[in-house]
Design a protein around this nucleic acid. Structure first.
Lengths: 335, 335
DNA sequence: CTGAAAGCGCTTACAG
DNA sequence: CTGAAAGCGCTTACAG
């Protein structure tokens, strides 16, 4: 494999007997070139195996055709759905996307921000880690490229945002459980540090208050945001002297763990304890029992974020947008 | 937002009172610059908010720090695991990755190949669509960038490959079912067009032959590679006049559908029909019943592919590698 | 360490 | 359509 020299536009032009300027117009699809010349040049490209160098073109014209997407964890189906949404709408618009995964680590997030900037992405969709350091937030504020935040909002950062109303969602879920006659309702999973957690907690409190049920902080149990976290949380809940009869979980991931944990304890999820999740990942309908959950429209969030970014790139001065999708309760047999 | 002019190395150099050459040496971490000068320059970078332009640097030095990854479908947990493996090992090596999803469509694959080449990726990890057109294959052969194929092999294409031994895997699975006393074993899901299917089918046949069981083609039922596909396939299998007592499924995705389909039919998966999957996605242990399956080490495949690519980029002349991971049977209660 | 020059592969702008 | 020149932000190579 000798490093073949790259075929350039000038090579093509010479081969076709036209000027470099003409060849350039043709690759960019200019209309004022005769059919005949165009075909001649296209044929030369074929023969020489020319590949357009978008990087060079972008650099010269100070444009960019790439976009960065930073998510937390691809293993969470919520994010794979979101990613689908993003790709769907960005592919159409002709962007290529750099994907980065933070694993919810601030250091990794910092690193990714740097590399993406160095690669001159034309814009960024960022799903921030659950506790971004002040330093990171400061940096994000300074970013002078189009930015869309998603899933988690960052205080004091001016940027487009698309997410769902976690507070209302949690409230709907808890109302549902109350209507089913539950009084002792646990709130399982997640870390109290994150905004996403605080919002849900607020919704949880709202619903209890409205129903005149007193808040019992011992029913609020934090955990890792994972299946194992859910197992842990429910295990602790079951040790309670006056255990809950129902639980709202931080997300479906955690809820799945809760279901598994109940099974492990010889209990019947849905009967012995009602379980409600958050996100409505595609698998949620397939859990055993199928999970009642709050739909957070992952794919839609992704495509909306992509579309906001696209518009912001086209027009940096447009008014700032904040899209909060209204969640929906999906009732299945786990409650 | 006025389009701030980008701060260049020359700006930094002027600000710090050194030459552009010196500044360039510093960003590249050259050792023969005095500590004092280095600090002075780094400070100027800070103050001016300098961002290294890796794109320009790569272009000049004819290097690249990006890599393309083309997969079939991110919604399949097999691929999200693979992606994790790829990222893990590529991040360390300092590459940024362009992600593309084909949805198993040849046209999309073509498109992605083009854009990635135009973006000058330094190499490509390709999980080909199940039936690549001859045109595509021809094109892939012509690629003069480092290429690693994964998951599906392409005939007559010279490239590194990492995958698992589907034939042996399927054979292990069927042997297991035979040992459990099954004689009528169905092969459910997937399309007979793909290599992945043919290999599994071969393993299925091998096992039957060795056990002296006659092949019954009516027990081989194709379907979409999805949960719905699995449901369809098992529905058809149950209509058989002499229905199977066990099934090996194209993958876990399909197997999950088969389990759900059995439930729908009022049957007890694992008791009324043994079910074995393929891939061992993380969820497989959580199905109801937990799924016996053949582990295909998605994450390991990803990290191996990444490492092959990295090595190939460093040394294009190195000997071609073909890594076939040996599958492992994971027995759970669905069989 | 400096300084000046050339070049990566394109686009831009312009006179013809 | 052509042709020649300049420039995007870097690195390379070299003489000093």
């Amino acid at each position: 494999m000798k490093p073949k020299k790259r075929v350039t536009l000038l090579d093509v032009a010479k081969h076709a007997g036209v000027s470099r300027a003409t060849a350039s117009l043709i690759v960019r699809g200019s209309p004022d070139i005769t059919e005949k010349t165009r075909n001649k040049v296209l044929k030369s490209m074929q023969e020489l195996g020319y590949v357009y160098d978008r990087v060079a073109a972008n650099m010269r014209s100070n444009k960019t055709s790439t976009v960065g997407l930073i998510i937390t964890d691809i293993a969470n189906p919520f994010y794979s759905e979101l990613l689908r949404g993003v790709h769907n709408s960005l592919d159409e618009a002709g962007y290529s996307v750099f994907l980065g995964t933070t694993f919810d680590l601030d250091a990794k997030q910092q690193k990714l921000l740097s590399t993406m900037l160095e690669h001159r992405v034309g814009g960024l969709i960022l799903c921030p880690v659950s506790d971004s350091s002040n330093e990171t937030i400061e940096r994000i504020k300074q970013l002078d490229i189009p930015l869309v935040l998603s899933v988690r909002e960052l205080e004091n950062v001016d940027a487009d945002y698309v997410g769902i109303d976690y507070e209302v969602g949690a409230q709907m879920a808890v109302n549902h459980l109350i209507q089913k006659g539950h009084q002792r309702i646990a709130f399982l999973g997640g870390f109290s540090g994150s905004t996403a957690w605080k919002k849900r907690k607020q919704g949880y409190c709202n619903a209890l208050t409205q129903a005149g049920i007193e808040l019992d902080n011992s029913l609020i149990i934090e955990s890792e945001v994972s299946r194992d976290g859910g197992k842990d949380a429910v295990r602790k809940a079951l040790l309670h002297q006056d255990p809950p009869t129902a639980a709202i979980c931080f997300n479906d991931f955690v809820a799945h763990g809760v279901i598994l944990g109940l099974n492990d304890a010889g209990l019947n999820p849905g009967k012995d304890m009602a379980v409600v999740g958050f996100d409505n990942v595609p698998e949620a309908a397939l859990y055993n029992p199928p999970l009642t959950t709050v739909s957070s429209y992952a794919r839609l969030i992704g495509s909306q974020a992509a579309s906001l970014l696209h518009q912001r790139i086209l027009n940096p001065d447009r008014e700032q947008q904040r899209i909060i999708l209204h969640p929906e309760l999906v009732v299945r047999s786990s409650s």
